[in-house]
C-alpha cells in the first residue's frame, strides 16, 4: 500500500502520534484510578509505536518495526509487574486511587 506514503505526508503521522501521546499524558494527569493511568501509559507507548512504524515505513528501514517488538515486550512486562503491584496494594488498602497513596511525603 505504497499509496499511503504518497497520500499522507509524514508529518501527519508525526502530529497524530504526538497528539495521541499527549492524550495519554492528559489521561495520566486526568485520572486518579491507577488502572486507568496504566492504560493511559499504554496509550503513550502505542503512540510511540505508531510513530516508529511510520518513520520506519517512510525511511524504508524496518529497525523501527523491530524496536516496536521490544516496546511491546517491555509493555507487557510492565503491565504484569504493575498489575501485580496494584493487586498487592489493593489487598492492603482496598483502593486503586492514587490519591490514597500519600503516606510517604515531605
Amino acid at each position: 500500500m505504497n499509496q499511503t506514503l504518497e497520500a499522507v505526508p509524514q508529518n501527519w503521522y508525526l502530529i497524530l502520534s504526538t497528539l495521541l501521546f499527549c492524550i495519554g499524558v492528559i489521561g495520566v494527569l486526568f485520572r486518579r484510578n491507577a488502572i486507568i493511568i496504566l492504560m493511559c501509559i499504554e496509550l503513550m507507548l502505542n503512540s510511540v509505536n505508531l510513530l516508529l512504524v511510520a518513520f520506519s515505513a517512510y525511511a524504508g528501514n524496518n529497525d523501527g518495526q523491530v524496536f516496536v517488538f521490544f516496546i511491546m515486550v517491555v509493555a507487557a512486562a510492565e503491565v504484569a509487574v504493575g498489575l501485580a503491584l496494584l493487586m498487592s496494594i489493593y489487598r492492603n488498602i482496598a483502593s486503586t486511587d492514587i490519591n490514597v497513596l500519600n503516606k510517604l511525603k515531605w
Binding site: 502520534s17 501509559i41 510511540v48 510513530l51 529497525d63 524496536f67 503491584l85 498487592s88 510517604l104
Partner: peptide, 26 residues
C-alpha cells in the same frame, strides 16, 4: 507498596517520554 507503585507509575510514565524521544531520534 506505595513506594514500589509510585516508582513504577512514574517510571513507566518517564519511559514513555524516553521512547518518544527515541522515536524522534530514529
Amino acid at each position: 507498596n506505595e513506594s514500589g507503585f509510585k516508582y513504577f507509575l512514574m517510571g513507566a510514565f518517564a519511559s514513555g517520554f524516553l521512547l518518544f524521544g527515541i522515536a524522534l531520534v530514529y
